[in-house]
């Protein structure tokens, strides 16, 4: 069922301890900072988080990790110049890491949304990231069996939603949004704008509303440093 809520706090209020949470975004593009902040405030812990990275700087996912709320990260690129909170937890043995090549990460998420039980891919064959996994030679090429990644919840950011939950994104901020929306049992989206049903050209809808459960409007901040305030009390015009 599709739900429009007034605040990011309300949007994430159903997330339970021990959940697997997908978080969209690549770098800062498409990161749902306000939803992550609300997840921080709601207290859910022992989380498994699926994201391309493992947080950067002192915001968003990095703070969840700093506060010890993330039990396990599933990601492709945890080590960055400003990923100090992950680095500290990892070196202290306080966070589990499942490292997945980026395309395998994307395809495993896609597979979950598409009801695929697994797939063989050449990516990673013959490397340490394929150790312990089933392999086959298919069409003369070594391939590795990879399984879907499901999630209880996805937190994603889109540009606009209409009254049916159809979504459009903006430029490279699209990244993991569409596939995470499909892979999670409950998808929570923050959008800059909610438009009337019929206002989005059906030819241009990127994520059909069938994949969306909760929508909250978070106006685009002129300055991202102000992005951690909720800013969702404003009524849709």
């Amino acid at each position: 069922m599709l739900n429009f809520v007034e605040s990011v706090q309300e949007a994430v209020s159903g997330i339970k301890d021990g959940s697997t949470v997908m978080i969209g975004g690549f770098g800062n593009a498409g990161q749902p900072f306000e939803l992550i902040d609300a997840l921080m405030d709601c207290g859910a812990t022992d989380l498994t988080v699926v994201n391309n990275n493992a947080g950067q700087g002192d915001q968003g996912l990095a703070l969840l990790i700093k506060e010890g709320r993330v039990r396990k990260m599933i990601c492709s690129f945890p080590r960055q110049s400003d990923s100090w909170h992950f680095d500290a937890r990892y070196k202290a043995g306080q966070i589990e890491l499942e490292l997945v090549p980026q395309g395998n990460l994307a395809e495993r998420i896609r597979a979950a949304g598409a009801g695929i039980g697994g797939f063989f891919t050449p990516t990673g064959y013959g490397t340490m990231l394929a150790e312990g996994k089933e392999t086959r030679i298919i069409d003369g090429r070594g391939q590795v069996f990879e399984t879907p990644i499901h999630a209880d919840v996805a937190l994603i950011k889109a540009l606009k939603a209409d009254g049916k939950g159809n979504l459009v994104y903006r430029k490279t901020a699209r990244n993991f949004g569409p596939i995470m929306a499909a892979a999670a049992r409950h998808t929570i989206v923050q959008v800059a704008e909610i438009v009337p049903t019929g206002a989005l050209d059906p030819e241009n809808v990127v994520t059909p509303g069938i994949y969306v459960n909760t929508v909250v409007r978070v106006p685009a901040a002129a300055d991202t440093t102000a992005g951690s305030t909720t800013g969702t009390e404003e009524k849709v015009a």
Partner: peptide, 30 residues
């Protein structure tokens, strides 16, 4: 900030550019 490359550097788009999600992007490669 919504238009970056894989190194997370802000870039520009050329006429004829297209955007797609991550699974499509890697399907293109694979």
């Amino acid at each position: 900030e919504d238009l970056i490359n894989a190194g997370k550097i802000p870039v520009t788009e050329l006429p004829g550019a297209s955007y797609f999600h991550h699974a499509d992007s890697f399907a293109m490669m694979r």
